[in-house]
């Protein structure tokens, strides 16, 4: 916990800084906020609210990413013990990575990494 104290202090400072700048702007700005601004897409009024279910064509990439991301969670602690565990730990980790890479290459060959 002691370790984290400076980080928490800095978090407080960061929050205060942002709040302070915003408060300062409240005092200094020439006018109160402009409300109900139409979104800009070229000057003509939009027909619908832009918040919509955005079609994410790269969803396959998120799956690939997720697989690697889980792997990372193992790899961070692995860095600490690999020297003691010896070659076995290296083979296991990089074997695992090779499997994942094979998956990526397959996805690539199938065109999953291209979406336009």
């Amino acid at each position: 916990m002691d370790e984290l104290t400076p980080a928490l202090v800095l978090l407080a400072i960061g929050v205060l800084l942002v709040a302070g700048v915003r408060a300062l702007a409240r005092i200094l700005s020439v006018a109160p906020p402009l409300t109900n601004v139409m979104p800009h897409a070229g000057g003509l009024p939009p027909l619908e609210h832009p918040v919509s279910r955005f079609h994410v064509r790269w969803y396959v990439v998120t799956m690939v990413f997720l697989a690697f991301d889980m792997e990372m969670i193992f790899m961070y602690p692995w860095t600490l013990v690999v020297a003691q565990m010896g070659p076995a730990a290296v083979v296991e980790m990089f074997g695992f990575l090779a499997l994942l890479m094979a998956g990526v290459l397959y996805a690539w060959r199938e065109g999953a990494l291209r979406w336009t």
Binding site: V21, A25, P33, V37, P39
Partner: peptide
């Protein structure tokens, strides 16, 4: 320039 500038809020933002 941004400090003296006006903030803006979009419709239903």
């Amino acid at each position: 320039r941004l400090l003296v500038g006006q903030r803006r809020r979009g419709v239903a933002s």
